[in-house]
Design a protein around this nucleic acid. Structure first.
Lengths: 144, 144
DNA sequence: GTAATAGAGGATAAAAAGGTCTTAATATAT
DNA sequence: ATATATTAAGACCTTTTTATCCTCTATTAC
C-alpha cells in the first residue's frame, strides 16, 4: 500500500513523537534501532520529513530529531504519506489507467472510490500524537 | 495497491468476459490492444490466469482466450488478485511489520483493519461478469 | 505442410530499496 | 578561541525487485 520509505517514515514519526512528549530528542541510530529499519535509508526519509517541516533536526552532539510540542497534534498520517509517496494513493486508478474519473471511469472506479475515500478520511484524521500513546503504554509496537 | 501484472490481469479478464458473453474467443494481440498493455508481459499474466483455471486458452489458428459461460458468474476479483499478487493485500501490515496482529498490533492496526476488511469484502463479492456489463454499454473503459 | 496462436524460459530495462563516503553544523573539552 | 567528537545532510553507488521484451517450442485449423 505504502512504499518502504513511507512505512519507515510513519514508524519513525510515531517514535519521535513519543519521545518528544518528554522533551527527548532522538538520534538516527536510535530511531533505526527502535523501529528496526536500515539506518542509511532511514536517514533519507528523515531528510524528507525535515524538509517538509514535519519534524525538526539538529546537527552536532546531542543533536537528532524531535517534533514541536505545539505542532504534534496537528501532524496527520496524511501529511507524512503525502510528503513521501505523493498523492498516488488517492489519485491513482485501481486498475492503472492514466485517466480514470467519474466522467470516464474504469470498471471498478466506483467500488474503489468508496474504499479510497474512507482511507483518505482515516489518514487525514489520525494524528501522529494519538498513535504514539499506545506505544508508550506497551499496547502497540513498531518492530517485528 | 496492485502490481502491474494484476492490473493487466483484471482488465484482461473483464474484456475477455465481455467477449465470451457473445461466444467470442479473443487473441492475446487483441487483448493487449483493447486494454493497452505490453503484449509479451500480458502473455505471462494470461498464463497465470489459465493455470489457475480462471480463463481457458486454446492454441492454434482461431485460438485465444475465453471464459466458460457457466463459470463467468463465479469468478470474483479476489480470485484474480489472489492468483497474481497472493494474499499480501489482506495479510500484510500497513506499516510493514512482519508480525502484526490483534495480539501484537502496530499503531495503525485497528484503523487499517477496518479498511482492509472492507476491501476484502468488495473483492470477494464483485464478479468479473458484472464489471463487463458497463464496458459493453460504453459506461466504463479499460484504456487511457 | 503451413500459418496462426499460446506456452515457457531466459534476457534486459526500470524502479525501488539500501549502502558508502564526504561535507556541514555544533556541543564540549581544552 | 580552537580542536575534537558527534551528529545530520547530501551526493553517488550497489543490490534487489518489478516490469518488460525476446526467442524458441507446442498445438491446431486449414
Amino acid at each position: 500500500m505504502f512504499s518502504k520509505a513511507c512505512e519507515y517514515g510513519i514508524r519513525a514519526a510515531i517514535y519521535i513523537a513519543g519521545q518528544a512528549k518528554h522533551d527527548k530528542r532522538v538520534s538516527l541510530k536510535d530511531i533505526s534501532q527502535k523501529i528496526d529499519s536500515p539506518e542509511a535509508f532511514t536517514a533519507k526519509v528523515m531528510q524528507i520529513l525535515t524538509r517538509n517541516g514535519i519534524i525538526n533536526s539538529v546537527k552536532g552532539p546531542t543533536g537528532g530529531f524531535d517534533i514541536d510540542e505545539k505542532q504534534m497534534n496537528n501532524i496527520k498520517l496524511s501529511d507524512i504519506v503525502y510528503a513521501i509517496d505523493g498523492d498516488s494513493i488517492y489519485r491513482g486508478c485501481g486498475l492503472g489507467l492514466k485517466e480514470c474519473s467519474a466522467k470516464r471511469p474504469c470498471p471498478v472506479h466506483d467500488k474503489f472510490k468508496v474504499i479510497r475515500d474512507e482511507l483518505k478520511v482515516m489518514l487525514e484524521t489520525t494524528t501522529i500524537y494519538e498513535l504514539s500513546i499506545g506505544l508508550k503504554d506497551g499496547l502497540t509496537f513498531l518492530k517485528r
